[in-house]
Nucleic acid binder design. Sequence first.
DNA 1: ATGAAAGCGCTAACAG
DNA 2: CTGTTAGCGCTTTCAT
Lengths: 364, 364
Amino acid sequence: MADTVHPSLASGRGSGAPERPWGNRPTMKDVAARAGVGLKTVSRVVNGEPGVTADTERRVQEAIEALGFRRNDSARVLRKGRTASVGLVLEDLADPFYGPLSRAVEEVARAHGALLINGSSAEDPEREQELALALCARRVDGLIVIPAGHDHRYLEPEIRAGVATVFVDRPAGLIDADTVLSDSFGGARAGTAHLIAHGHRRIGFVGDRPRIHTAAERLRGYRAAMADAGLPVGPSWVSLGPTAPERVRDAVRAMLTGPEPVTAVLAGNNRVTVTAVRVLAGPRAAAGTGREHPVALVGFDDLDLADLLGITVVAQDARALGRTAAEQLFRRLDGAGGEPVRVTLATELIPRGSGEIPPPAGTA
Amino acid sequence: MADTVHPSLASGRGSGAPERPWGNRPTMKDVAARAGVGLKTVSRVVNGEPGVTADTERRVQEAIEALGFRRNDSARVLRKGRTASVGLVLEDLADPFYGPLSRAVEEVARAHGALLINGSSAEDPEREQELALALCARRVDGLIVIPAGHDHRYLEPEIRAGVATVFVDRPAGLIDADTVLSDSFGGARAGTAHLIAHGHRRIGFVGDRPRIHTAAERLRGYRAAMADAGLPVGPSWVSLGPTAPERVRDAVRAMLTGPEPVTAVLAGNNRVTVTAVRVLAGPRAAAGTGREHPVALVGFDDLDLADLLGITVVAQDARALGRTAAEQLFRRLDGAGGEPVRVTLATELIPRGSGEIPPPAGTA
DNA sequence: ATGAAAGCGCTAACAG
DNA sequence: CTGTTAGCGCTTTCAT
């Protein structure tokens, strides 16, 4: 903390000069003194406001240069009441799905002169709340949240106090707010229907934990497609849980070796798809499973290089998700009123081979 | 009524009440009034400072709840002189290399109670400077920069004023500062040597624009390995430039069709590798190039699914890069002095098949 | 244990 | 055109 820094260390001189909280950075007052003008004149120059003669401006600029002055936005913010920053709480910036989403938000923010503060919740509701509230304490103008938890009432006072808030990728819990989602239900239904259209009747679904909204929706889409086709869903064909590779691997193997082995798999998100591909296409894929025929696969979320691996996917547009949410946020910040808006973005099925593998003969 | 409704909250609009800059959020003063205590007591409670009786604390807490008060950190920051935030200027958060790097920085910052503000320079030096200085104006405690430009003297006044600064992935230009790099030279040399060890004599290098430090270093490593082996470098075997797929594709094709076609390629970064793989392994890979034998490939930077595609790579550890830089930053913030530090992290060659393809018979 | 007063560095609102 | 005076909401200092 600040108190661990001894005065003698702080600025290289051990004099009795009172330590200023901001080190000893020059302030507008210092610039004014040096330029022999009033404080407000410096402010005018720094902010490019009119009403300063060219000569005065030059003298002020010189003083700014000489002193190495840079405006302290903390003070400006306090006075103006706007931070020109927005917050984004997401699951994990290292996930290839959220990186592009965040970047899209950043671009919109930049177009509006705002900076973006990211925070990773690591899928932990407590951490989500902690982060969101920390951002509110810093008085971000707006907040975009990819929920980890299911109760966002903690944000009610903030929203009421004027923090524009948009939820993305998953809906808010127990409060009504602007929301931008991908069509998880429709996408999963289409992906499953695609497999059915290619002759499959025993199809498995491996998804994330069911309390995650997108996971639940995708499961619902899968079931809907099966029902549409009049197909039963075997007891061991559905597996929801953490997306850790070990669990997914075991889940996929179990589906392939049960009494009614599946001939195709719908993977519930990018991480699951990756592991599924490893299991299904790995060197020892068929070993120990008794399979001899390749298993069809449709993954939710697109992947880099998926085209080269021939993986059929139901793709969502992470960038569009971020852009749409950010645009809605700034619309609110620009004064747009009205009821909370709910946008659903379509998904796109991209056939690349793995989803078009037919079932083994004699399975229909 | 004055105790339940904030003075100017009652005014729906248009009343004579002066608009306060922060909307009409309650302040500590409001809480104090409602709880019937002094301002400082509220501050003590909010910050968990000692010297408040249990009963007083309870009354303050009630007032906080009732009013929906949340401390305004902007004001706190102004007074304390520390923002508890660090800035990270990188190229593109959507790039799978920088996402994990950023996340690693975030984790270290979090451990030190600081938030992270990211900014994407889009590889534009002007934008890098604009972002870095905007972060300085917000008085981030520290700054981590992945340079886009080559002249960082613009940061000198800031660094002198006390902004701890660490450069990552590429060195600073024209100033001396803490730096954390990957061993691009050594990695490229090892990757090239690997291809040579597998019998190749005509090896191409496709990299990013030469003004990017890592690109230049990797080229140097490539040349060093060739020289070590006493091999010449054909005039058409080296191609540096933007990593746009079209350019990379053309560059690779040119190397494969020249008078002295290469039998192996070293790809200079993750984007180049992806395109190179598409060209070399794509459905029409051999068509039009006159090739019949597969071309060996070693990529710089690891990729998701590279194992499944059998792509041999020279991997850097993006997370370690971010973590190391952040740790150095906080070491400085905790008062560590001394000369600027320069750390180089080793790379790792991961053989997966594409780099072990031998040259066609009769090429040696 | 509690509170009054004095700023942090800047901008808004008025003077001159 | 320019400068002076009040704050923004909080922490610090120093009384009580």
